[in-house]
Amino acid sequence: MDVTARSATSEAGAPRARARARGANWYRGDCHVHSVYSDGELAPEQLVADARDVGLDFLATTEHNTASAHGIWASLASDGLLILLGEEVTTKTGHWLALGIAPGELIEWDYGVGDDLIGRGLRQVRDSGGISVAAHPHAPYPSGSFMYSYEGFDAVEVWNGLWASERPWNADNEAALAAWGQALVQGSRTGRWRPAVGNSDTHLEGQIGIPHTVVLAEELGAAAILDGLRAGRSWIAEASTVDLSLSAVAAGHTAGIGERLSAQGESVRVRVRVSGVPRATVSFHTDRGEVHCEALSGAGTGTLAWHTRSEDSAFVRIEVRHPHGGMAALTNPILLT
């Protein structure tokens, strides 16, 4: 493909702000994708077709340090697929995702942690109505490890699928999840916690959607999806064949993922339903670590329940793992007060 010839269309307007009207629902999306316009091997048209094939509702373009393809991506949005414009800001000491930026908008990237310039880029994204995501914080290659503070970031990419063709869940993701979980313990008590997201980091064929983030949004629209991600009303799935629901009930009130439940001193019943993961192990995690674990049937479908109190648990979140220990799904927390 002649990238230079086609980049002129990057000056086109933004993709449609809303896709097919489906109202409040759970929407599946991959917010870390590369095409031939940076270091990917596939054209945007192919990535869009693949996204539809694997059951995604939205996609974010995140080429490295360029907005040259924004117009190409915008022209590919449709009633069935929402496209968010973005950039992978590839600095000298860590990468991050700028999601929901304006057409043609470029976020500065040529700096390192010692230059004290990252705040300017974070403000630029915020002023555009977008969100900033710390990407693959424990990536094992030069500049891939994230050396910045998470202050000012909206979310952390705890599951990155760049090596999904070899192993969908690896030691880098395990380290990112552990660090995020530790920060969640502190943040849940102050109300300043950062949601987890998962993305494919697609560069090659067959990677898109492994994993992806499932977001509860008021509609399949850019602002609504970004709001859902920002609020942590989301969970991460290995594939669209995996489904999960999580709720907590106490004192006549119910809360879901990313929400806060006022238990008023009463017992809290936590209920999770999982499907699409044969012989999976489902574990419940709080600020005390893993507190309960059960195995699903061989069919991979089941509903599990666990009880706690807000005095004992500041939050509860779920991990679903394959028999070999690899992750199949994980959730953001339900906060308990």
Rank of each mutant, 00 (worst) to 15 (best):
F284D: 03
R273N: 13
E311A: 13
S132W: 09
V3N: 08
G265F: 06
V113Y: 04
S7D: 03
V282G: 00
S35C: 04
Y148L: 09
G325N: 05
S7K: 11
P44A: 08
A74C: 02
D227C: 11
V33S: 02
A67Q: 04
A196M: 08
V316A: 05
Y141F: 15
T337S: 14
T254F: 11
S275H: 04
R321I: 02
P323Q: 02
A5G: 13
R192S: 14
A299K: 15
H322M: 11
T202S: 10
W163R: 14
H253P: 02
T90D: 07
G80V: 11
G94C: 03
G144M: 05
L56Q: 03
H307L: 14
R20Q: 14
A239D: 08
T281L: 13
A24K: 14
S267H: 13
V89R: 04
A155G: 09
V282S: 10
A74E: 00
Q182N: 14
T286Q: 06
D50S: 14
V272M: 01
V274Y: 04
G104M: 05
A155I: 01
A314N: 10
P142Q: 01
E174N: 08
Q124N: 07
P323G: 05
A299E: 13
R269Q: 15
G13M: 03
A295G: 12
V242W: 07
N173F: 06
S10C: 10
L42K: 03
C293Q: 14
S247V: 11
A175V: 09
R18L: 10
T241P: 00
A8Y: 14
A51M: 01
R6Q: 14
I118L: 11
G55S: 08
G252K: 07
G187T: 01
L56K: 00
G112N: 09
C293M: 12
D116I: 12
E174F: 09
R269E: 15
L85N: 04
E259N: 06
E290K: 12
D287K: 02
S128G: 08
S68I: 13
L84H: 02
H307K: 13
A12E: 03
V249L: 13
I210S: 11
R321E: 09
L42F: 00
G129F: 10
Y37R: 07
T281H: 12
T241D: 12
G206P: 03
V215A: 03
L97F: 01
L229W: 00
N332R: 07
S267F: 14
V268T: 00
H285K: 12
H253W: 11
N25M: 13
E88S: 07
T4R: 15
I72L: 14
R167S: 15
R279G: 12
A77E: 00
E105P: 03
H253V: 15
Q46H: 11
L106M: 13
L226Q: 01
I208Q: 08
E11Q: 15
A179T: 04
P278A: 08
V158P: 03
Y150F: 15
W109F: 03
Q46L: 12
L204P: 06
T213S: 07
D201C: 06
L220S: 04
L117H: 09
R279K: 13
S262H: 14
G29A: 06
A248P: 08
T241N: 09
L184H: 05
E174S: 13
L99M: 04
A328W: 00
L184P: 08
G181I: 02
N173H: 05
N332W: 02
A329I: 04
S128Q: 10
A17G: 11
T91D: 00
V89Y: 07
R309T: 15
E311H: 10
G129A: 02
R20M: 12
V277A: 07
